[in-house]
Design a protein around this nucleic acid. Structure first.
Lengths: 95, 95
DNA sequence: CAATTATTAAATTAATTTCTGAAATATTTC
DNA sequence: GAAATATTTCAGAAATTAATTTAATAATTG
């Protein structure tokens, strides 16, 4: 990797390295979820979830669709799914 | 992943997600390097490199051996090598 | 259209991280 | 043992990130 790629990669990793954001990504591995459903699972405020989602959107990791007044979020960068899967295999061998 | 694993994993990712630290890890992929050699390659101060190395040591990612007044650093957690390799395949397809 | 629900935006504060420069430690060499 | 080299430690300033609170937007329901 040369410096530009390292910078891009470190930004990506940084966006994944906050516990709330990493948990959001894990939750979104197999299904799409609304902001409220995510808020319930990570136990913080709506505004806080919204901010974290925005960071993940900014990185192009997730996207959303709107239905009524719900925003459903999902992972659109399949490489992230691969990476999370690899992390699980390497670092969480039990399950 | 349950919450404890997510916390541990996010700490690990955070330690890798600083551009200087990620570059250090890339440099240490195939060889061990002294602090001074690393300093030359990442172009910052000695103290700064030393601090970043300490963070990686604290995570158990790297270890060192002392020879004369040089400290040679190397990656000891093989899973990190695997993970970096995977990141390269996924995000840096051209080489 | 008023009330409700879901979400976002903006501003403020709090917390954490990073860098820098100087001083300290350890080893080697002369 | 003094000087030189390599690295670390420390303390503070600067920068970045995160959380909180409040207000705003947007769609839905009665």
């Amino acid at each position: 990797m040369q410096d530009e790629q390292i910078d891009a990669m470190s930004k990506l990793l940084k966006s994944m390295s906050h516990p709330i954001r990493l948990k959001i990504l894990c939750l979104l591995q197999d299904k799409e979820l609304s902001v409220g459903e995510i808020r319930d699972q990570v136990k913080t405020t709506n505004a806080n979830v919204s901010q974290h989602l925005n960071i993940l959107r900014g990185q192009g990791i997730i996207d959303y669709r709107k239905d009524a007044n719900f925003i459903y979020n999902k992972i659109v960068d399949k490489r992230i799914l691969d990476l999370i899967k690899k992390m699980r295999v390497l670092f969480c061998p039990n399950f």
